[in-house]
């Protein structure tokens, strides 16, 4: 084994350190989720912690720290595409004519009378 590869793959200490960090972050996110300290920021905070955890896994367990280049580009592209898929779908649903969304907690009371009201929906006002 050459000295160069030995250098590239650090010893087990690094893996254990990452593992401990991951356990600590898990404990943190559970504690925050249970106590509802973050309030309406609960989901963003939980997701931020998840992003930190996954970054650790990707960089050190999956060696993206050592093997950059095209590999990093591949992962980044995939993530950007997922983000845009989710983003544009949510944007569509959020900016629609309200009755054009499926009947939800927010729009059910707007459902007009007449035919085709979804089952179980008690229609109320005629015009949004």
């Amino acid at each position: 084994m050459s000295a160069e590869t030995e250098h590239k793959h650090a010893g087990p200490g690094r893996y254990v350190a990452v593992w401990i960090a991951l356990l600590l972050f898990t404990a943190l996110t559970v504690a925050l989720g249970r106590s509802h300290l973050a309030g309406s920021w609960g989901l963003p905070v939980a997701l931020a912690i998840a992003v930190v955890k996954s970054t650790l896994v990707v960089l050190f367990f999956m060696h993206l720290w050592d093997h950059g280049g095209a590999n990093r580009l591949v992962l980044a592209t995939a993530l950007v595409f997922v983000a845009l898929l989710i983003g544009l779908v949510l944007l569509d649903s959020a900016t629609r004519f309200p009755l054009a969304d499926p009947p939800t907690e927010a729009t059910m009371r707007l459902m007009p009378p007449g035919p085709g009201a979804p089952p179980g929906v008690e229609p109320a006002a005629a015009r949004p």
């Binding site: 591949v74 993530l79 595409f81 997922v82 779908v89 649903s93 499926p102 907690e105």
Partner: peptide, 26 residues
């Protein structure tokens, strides 16, 4: 890594469904 990217997008479809329905039914 390319294969893992396909896995990310495979789950990406489910995450999209999750995100939409969570937004509709908080």
């Amino acid at each position: 890594w390319l294969f893992l990217a396909t896995e990310v997008l495979l789950f990406g479809g489910l995450f999209t469904a999750y995100a939409l329905y969570r937004m509709l039914y908080p």
